[in-house]
Nucleic acid binder design. Sequence first.
DNA 1: AGGTGTGAACACTTTCACAGCA
DNA 2: TGCTGTGAAAGTGTTCACACCT
Lengths: 221, 221
Amino acid sequence: MEGPRVGVLARRISESTVRRLSFYLRILEEAELGGVGTISSEELAERAATTAAQVRKDLSLFGSFGKRGLGYAVRQLATELRDILGLDRSWRVALVGAGRIGSALFEYPGFRRRGFEIVAVLDADPNKQGKCWRGVLVRDVAELEHVLRAERVEIVILAIPAPAAADVSARAVAVGVKGILNFAPMQLRVPAGVAVKDVNMVMELEALSFALTQAGRTPWG
Amino acid sequence: MEGPRVGVLARRISESTVRRLSFYLRILEEAELGGVGTISSEELAERAATTAAQVRKDLSLFGSFGKRGLGYAVRQLATELRDILGLDRSWRVALVGAGRIGSALFEYPGFRRRGFEIVAVLDADPNKQGKCWRGVLVRDVAELEHVLRAERVEIVILAIPAPAAADVSARAVAVGVKGILNFAPMQLRVPAGVAVKDVNMVMELEALSFALTQAGRTPWG
DNA sequence: AGGTGTGAACACTTTCACAGCA
DNA sequence: TGCTGTGAAAGTGTTCACACCT
């Protein structure tokens, strides 16, 4: 069962495949709650807005989880996907930036539900330092290295303005952080082996603006 | 100068190209503030973390903006990109969901700076309705159709839980909205001609989890 | 029969390499 | 000479079609 995993994982998995795996997992967990025992690639595809062939190809990159003529066992496949995605454990996360976005992220229940525990909050603003957020003390970002080490942080969320992001990112990487979720609208430069995911809401709106402009006319244009 | 634009735009422009164009624009505007008059595809690529050939290819899809042997005029190219992306105007946006994320988005200055004006806020919670956010009244989401029409809204931001998202999205589309920025963790089903961009922060963290898990599993990670 | 797993075909994106112009 | 613009080549991701298993 674990046999083929390591060998297969040597090949590079595309960004889009990973995104879809997350999606499949969410769908499977919903189906499981609904009491569904078995699901076909066709049904999974329908709900994930992709094709059956794509679903099978994605899953086949990691092993053979289905039964021919039957489909996939919902519960078992969900477990496999959690394992593949590394969600069969919890992750220690630090939040840098206790402003509006940081605070909204901190309160967002979806993170904890998936095992992402925010164990540290840091901010450069002295007015925010010393506050306690549901048992987590807001620390001075000057103490970053100390806090990251003491709390054994694995992932850092950057919810700070662009000018500060490069510095904080470099310092986090220097103490061994291997994953960064970046909300700052700038390209972080990190060494190989460190993963960065960008969330850029203005850019998404710009893409909408482009699509709407292309289409040529808006309803009241 | 404007000649090739329309003809060329007929071809489909990829998601990744649009994303990079946004990026180039940001870089150009920074460069312009720094007093830079001319920039080469090489420099642009360097700052956008891509290749010079990619930059030239992206831009060539829309016209010939550079001068051989010289590079691109920063100010002029920025104007062209704003024009291409539809950012040479402002957009009327409605925010549905006045919770923590919605409120953080409302206060985020980056939207207005780019011409995205939040002209309406709606929420299903009676405790939030009637409040005034910097001059914008929080309305009942039951009034959605009325508000969207009255305010001539073009883009809707959904910052509401997944179960409500499908309904609100369908109603917005029904009154002619052509662009949706979706923060709800679910796949919206919209007719052709409507553009949806998803922002799914948990999925981004899951992708980080996958990357970190992978790194641990490969022999040379 | 019914539905997976997968090589092969296809489509799309990125990189290369160089002609051509300032 | 220097750097753009662009066909052609390489690379990557998706779809097809069917062998194969239950």
